[in-house]
């Protein structure tokens, strides 16, 4: 079985003043389809940089990154946008929903950029996804009319719109209370069981505990790789 994500000797160096800062210092890693991975580490350990590069939001200084068998480390901004659109889903700490926009339209957004579905099919799929995340009754609500947990569910439904093989989550429960956090993590677990690969960054041990595999980073290096 081929790896879904395979990185080799990945480096990311920022120049802050004259001092080069190695946010990623030679990381190699592979993730198989269907895995649920939590990346952990203290602030400044490089976990966010790692997620940004894995999510094709940023490019590494050197090293190789094969996503689904394709080298993506050196691609143009437009090519990366297409990859993100078709292969990746994102869930953010602060939800990043469009203001004053109805939930169903938020969920439709990724397909607007792909243009795969007709209007009716797109709407049908968006409504179906909102039902899937437990918001079947709130499809017409705007973010201001939804609780934090509900907003994050909308964001998850949106991330699933284009049927991506991988879902990236950056501190998905960071802005949520305990009850909502548990609900969101249950949803992630269900999605993982359905076969979606999930890569999540968190600094909370109890959230990371939902994942089947935990990676610990320190000073830009991968220091621990625990599978349960």
């Amino acid at each position: 079985m081929s790896h879904l994500i395979e990185i080799r000797d990945l480096r990311k160096t920022y120049a802050i003043g004259d001092e080069p800062v190695h946010a990623l210092d030679g990381v190699s890693l592979s993730i198989d389809p269907g895995e649920f991975v939590a990346i952990m580490g203290a602030s400044g350990s490089g976990k966010s940089t790692m997620l940004n590069i894995l999510g094709c939001l940023d490019v590494p200084t050197s090293g190789s990154y094969l996503l689904d068998g394709i080298e993506v480390a050196r691609r143009s901004r437009t090519e990366l946008a297409h990859i993100r659109n078709r292969k990746l889903g994102f869930v953010f700490q602060n939800f990043n929903l469009l203001p004053r926009t109805r939930a169903v339209e938020q969920v439709e957004l990724p397909d607007l950029y792909m243009g795969r579905l007709s209007f009716a099919d797109r709407r049908r799929r968006a409504l179906e996804l909102l039902r899937r995340v437990g918001l079947g009754g709130r499809t017409g609500h705007t973010p201001a009319q939804l609780s934090g947990g509900q907003q994050q569910r909308v964001a998850i439904a949106r991330a699933l719109m284009n049927e991506p093989p991988v879902l990236f989550a950056d501190e998905p429960t960071g802005n949520l209370d305990t009850k909502s956090s548990v609900e969101i993590m249950r949803l992630f677990t269900e999605l993982s069981e359905e076969g979606i690969t999930i890569v999540m960054v968190t600094h909370e041990d109890d959230i990371a505990a939902y994942a089947k595999r935990q990676l610990l980073m320190r000073d830009g290096k991968l220091v621990k790789d625990i599978r349960r």
Binding site: A81, H82, R84, R86, F90, L109, Y113, N162
Partner: peptide, 8 residues
């Protein structure tokens, strides 16, 4: 966000 979900 638009860029993250695939806007070129």
């Amino acid at each position: 966000l638009r860029m993250a979900i695939g806007a070129t």
